[in-house]
């Protein structure tokens, strides 16, 4: 492959703000091996609808309402497999390449090789000081999860939800202020 061809491939894989990472993946191929599948597709309309149904008086719902206020979409695809190795790690690498463009900050990327190979990455798309999206790729031995959040998201609010016990604790992985420099 020439340098030019490689650049074209990279360019085509790089996810743009409006591009759908989840849709670009061939999930149908994995479906027969899946023991459990979770699929969340929340577009602008459904997020607006959810906002109108999240209560301001209940602290947990009020917090979630605040968090999704600036979001354009949330998509989650999580598949649990019966056996290890039911999916190809090379496919996950393709996904990771899509979020390797210059607009993306690699917040965390941990790769474990060997029999219990796993691959977890958190990527943030910034525009100046503003966060425009988050992609989480979690490729564990028997589970593959992709979270794609498009829109302005405050990691601090996500952390607050975790600290309040509404969702699992987020920890310090996500920066308080979005950073433009990459972190490994």
């Amino acid at each position: 492959m020439s340098a030019k061809q490689f650049a074209v491939v990279l360019f085509s894989l790089a996810i743009c703000p409006g591009q759908d990472l989840i849709q670009s993946f061939d999930w149908a191929k994995l479906a027969p091996k899946a023991s459990e599948t979770v699929e969340v597709n929340l577009d602008g309309f459904l997020l607006k609808m959810a906002r109108s149904f999240l209560s301001d008086s209940k602290p947990d719902e009020a917090q979630a309402k605040k968090l999704i206020g600036g979001l354009k979409s949330i998509k989650v695809r999580s598949i649990k497999f019966n056996n290890e190795g039911d999916y190809n790690m090379a496919d996950v690498d393709k996904l990771r390449m899509a979020v390797s463009g210059s607009e993306w900050s690699k917040v965390v990327e941990v790769k474990n090789s060997g029999s219990k190979a796993s691959n977890v990455g958190v990527y943030i798309k910034n525009n100046g000081s503003k966060t425009e999206g988050i992609v989480i790729l979690a490729a564990e031995p028997k589970e593959l999860t992709i979270v794609q959040v498009v829109g302005s998201i405050d990691p601090e609010q996500l952390r607050a939800l975790g600290d309040a016990g509404i969702i699992p604790k987020v920890g310090n992985v996500l920066p308080v202020k979005p950073k433009s420099d990459k972190k490994d």
Partner: peptide, 9 residues
């Protein structure tokens, strides 16, 4: 799920 996977990371 987002928080869970962030926690894993």
């Amino acid at each position: 799920i987002t928080a869970d996977k962030t926690h894993v990371a």
